[in-house]
Computed example of a mutant assay.
Amino acid sequence: MKYRSAFDIIGPVMIGPSSSHTAGAARIGRVARTLFEKQPKKALISLYGSFAKTYKGHGTDLALVAGLLDFDTFDERIPNSLEIAKQLGMEVIFQEETAVPEHPNTVKINLFDEYDHELELIGISIGGGSIEITELNSFKLKLSGERAILVLHNDRFGIISSVTSVLSKHKINIGHMEVSRKEKGNTALMVIEVDEKIEDHVIEEITGLENVTRVIRMVN
């Protein structure tokens, strides 16, 4: 196995006993929070495989909620995240699922705000604190949680070229990109992981493109 950095060998700086069950879980929760773009009023957290069996002992429950509160993996408030969430008025419900997932460390998170707007996300913790988001509101994708943008758009000719042209103009290199759609000609989701920081004016330029309906920026 090849390692890209020392991080891949020693794992992340973190609070908790397990990089996959705590650090990875915290990162999944934080990605969900970022994509929801606000603190949820309610979180329904469904745990699968190893997560379902060991989440209390390994602090996976604490880590997931900490991520939803926008705490980083090394935040000293993680052990108290459930109580903090309660104090902030965030309802948290855990469900242990019996279905066999493709990956043992799998979680599905459903977030709701006060108007019952919902986000559904499925994530896996692949070890060493690394994660992958594999589904977002029924869109299949592969998102590592690193520096990236998600572009929700109408499925029309030329939109992918328009977005990548903006990134090229600003000398932003694409490390990974994929597009998912539910059906031809309907809504599609573009996931673009990049090497450079994407400034606000670039986000605004992409948001202003024809047929782009929403842009979400993620940073590592």
Rank of each mutant, 00 (worst) to 15 (best):
K2I: 10
A6Y: 01
D8R: 00
P12C: 13
P12K: 15
M14D: 06
T22M: 03
A23T: 01
A23F: 01
G24C: 06
A25Q: 13
A26D: 08
R30K: 14
A32P: 11
L35Y: 06
K38G: 04
K42D: 02
A43D: 04
S46Q: 15
S46F: 13
T54A: 05
Y55T: 04
L62I: 07
A63H: 09
A63T: 10
L69F: 06
F71L: 15
T73E: 09
R77G: 08
L82H: 06
E83H: 02
Q87W: 02
L88A: 07
E91V: 00
I93N: 14
F94Y: 15
Q95Y: 15
Q95G: 08
E96K: 12
E97Q: 10
E97R: 07
P101C: 00
H103M: 11
N105D: 15
I109F: 13
F112Y: 15
D113K: 00
D113N: 07
L121S: 09
L121Y: 05
I124Y: 11
I126D: 11
G128K: 12
E132Q: 15
E132P: 05
S138K: 14
S138M: 04
K140G: 12
L143G: 05
G145I: 06
E146A: 07
A148D: 00
F157K: 14
I159V: 15
S161D: 04
V163W: 10
V163T: 15
V163F: 12
T164D: 04
V166C: 08
H170C: 08
H170T: 05
K171L: 11
I172G: 01
N173Y: 06
M177H: 11
E178G: 11
V179C: 12
S180V: 01
K184C: 04
N186V: 09
T187S: 10
A188W: 04
M190R: 01
D195S: 01
K197R: 08
K197F: 11
V202A: 05
V212L: 09
T213H: 11
R214D: 14
M218K: 05
V219R: 06
N220Q: 10
N220R: 12
